[in-house]
């Protein structure tokens, strides 16, 4: 197997006195779509936040392409999230006042792309996700499924190496969820983008190449080893 692109080793993280991660380790390979499943409160989102450099783990290491994220500066982490990573949450990552096309163009603008070029690329991505013709709408004027596809376009527009998706279909009905997942996995496979997919839904996890299950802050396999 290839060398992992992103590795979290023995990650611990507590929210106040509540432990969320208790020594979870996970590897993500280049171009791989990995589903992280588990019950509510098993630490899935916290794992994603640690791996994406959104929060620092209390203990353990996160390594992305040979770089230690748990030790990187905030500026570097922000830059990584802008350029190498894309994130999709259940909702909330679109700016409500910006139109669909400006929301998608935003990461490009942040990287210094001129407005017109950024908009053109954003429109191409919207087209790819089947939301062409909705460029001028704002998030509040779209359906949940459309908004999530716009979010995907925004996450992928910079050509990231890893997309972090936290319950991307959590607020959608099954048909819209299917369209979002199909769009995400197709694009990711085409561009060889790795995806870390957090979900509690087995049917969503089935879009991935591989699945790991978190239980009480550790991977289920590790939990079994600890129990023995």
């Amino acid at each position: 197997m290839s060398t992992p692109l992103l590795t979290g080793r023995r990650l611990f993280k507590a929210h106040g006195s509540t432990p969320a991660l208790r020594g979870a380790s996970v590897e993500l390979h280049p171009g791989e779509i990995l589903a992280v499943t588990g019950a509510s409160g098993s630490g899935k989102s916290t794992l994603l936040h640690c791996l994406a450099g959104i929060v620092r783990p209390d203990e353990g290491t996160v390594e992305y392409a040979g770089e230690r994220l748990d030790e990187a500066s905030e500026a570097r982490l922000g830059e990584l999230r802008r350029t190498e990573f894309g994130v999709v949450f259940q909702f909330g990552q679109l700016i409500p006042e910006l139109t669909a096309v400006d929301n998608v163009a935003l990461p490009l603008l942040l990287a210094g792309t001129p407005r017109q070029a950024a908009r053109e690329r954003a429109i191409a991505w919207l087209e790819r996700f089947g939301v062409r013709g909705q460029e001028a709408l704002r998030p509040g004027e779209m359906s949940g499924g459309q908004a999530q596809r716009v979010s995907l376009a925004r996450a992928l527009v910079t050509g990231p190496k890893v997309v972090f998706a936290d319950e991307p279909t959590g607020a959608l009905d099954s048909l819209s969820g299917e369209q979002v997942m199909t769009a995400l996995t197709h694009t990711a496979r085409e561009a060889a983008t790795a995806v870390l997919l957090i979900t509690h839904d087995a049917q969503v996890a089935a879009y991935a190449d591989r699945e790991v299950t978190l239980r009480d802050g550790v991977l289920a396999a590790e939990a079994a080893e600890v129990a023995r």
Partner: peptide, 9 residues
């Protein structure tokens, strides 16, 4: 089951 679901997906 998961393996079969991935196939079907």
């Amino acid at each position: 089951h998961m393996a079969r679901m991935r196939e079907l997906t």
